[in-house]
Amino acid sequence: MSHRPMARPGGRSARVQESVHAAVRELQAEQGRDALTVPMVAARAGVTPSTIYRRWGDLKELLSDVAVERLRPEAPPEDHGDLAADLAAWAEQFLDEMASPSGRAYVRDALLGDPDGTNAGRCSAYAAEQVAVVLSRATDRGEAAPDVESVLDGVVAPLMYRILFRPDGLDRAYARGLAADVLAAPAAGPRRTGNAGR
């Protein structure tokens, strides 16, 4: 059972989360991730270790929660005027952020302390929200656009696989090519989700 909150808390709970997250970020920068302990984080944040254990469960789940917050996009995708340019630029930015040393570390931490898949779902939702903005803009301009799932399957999934398992030779041209391939694919019916029929 996960000890993480499902949504951003408010009031005192929000202040505790922010102080603990800030303590983790500061200590990681000063001493490195491998040196962190719950008592060390608690002392820096001005809370008791039991507060951290009660809320996050253990250090891995705390680091996972911090990583997911660091992976949250800070702004909507840039508008370049047409779908092809928007999607290519977004794919390049996604690759740059996720394939960077800090991005890889955040992804690893997000998944490592995620026993129930909650944080993976949050990361997936971030990507889906960004893609939805790009596609909605295109639709508003009168452009034909694929659905969000098609872009996740055709751009995000292969990028993440390559980032995590086959990073050699991964570059922006590959990201742009994935975006172009998704837009060139013939329109399909609604995609099924889940494992039905597989």
Rank of each mutant, 00 (worst) to 15 (best):
Q130D: 08
R166H: 03
Q93D: 09
L135A: 12
A75T: 15
P186R: 05
E74V: 12
A110P: 02
L62G: 09
S19A: 10
M98G: 05
R198H: 12
G142D: 13
T193W: 12
S13M: 15
P73C: 13
A138S: 02
L152C: 01
G142F: 13
R15V: 10
P77D: 08
E30V: 15
D96A: 06
T139L: 12
F165H: 06
R54D: 11
V182P: 01
C123M: 04
V41C: 11
L183T: 02
V66R: 00
L27W: 02
R141Q: 03
Q93P: 05
P73H: 13
K60N: 09
A105T: 13
E69L: 05
R25T: 15
E92L: 00
P186F: 05
P115D: 06
A99S: 14
T118G: 14
D116V: 09
G57H: 03
E92A: 05
A175I: 02
A67M: 03
D147Y: 07
P115R: 01
S19H: 12
G57Q: 08
R137N: 07
A125E: 14
P167K: 06
P49V: 07
R8T: 10
R33T: 11
T118Y: 13
A184T: 11
H21L: 11
L111V: 07
D86M: 06
W90Y: 10
G197P: 06
P77L: 07
S124I: 07
G194D: 13
A144K: 04
T139P: 03
R70P: 01
A110W: 00
A175M: 03
A128W: 04
G121Y: 07
P146C: 10
V41N: 04
P190D: 10
Y106M: 08
T118L: 15
G194N: 05
P77H: 09
S64Y: 05
Y126I: 04
P5G: 12
Y126N: 04
V107Y: 02
R55N: 14
A35V: 09
S102F: 09
A91T: 01
L164Q: 10
V131Q: 00
V182H: 05
M98I: 08
L36F: 09
Y161H: 05
V16G: 08
G103K: 01
L178T: 01
H80C: 08
A7S: 15
E61M: 10
A88H: 05
V47T: 15
A99W: 01
Y126M: 05
D79I: 14
G194V: 08
Q28K: 10
R70G: 02
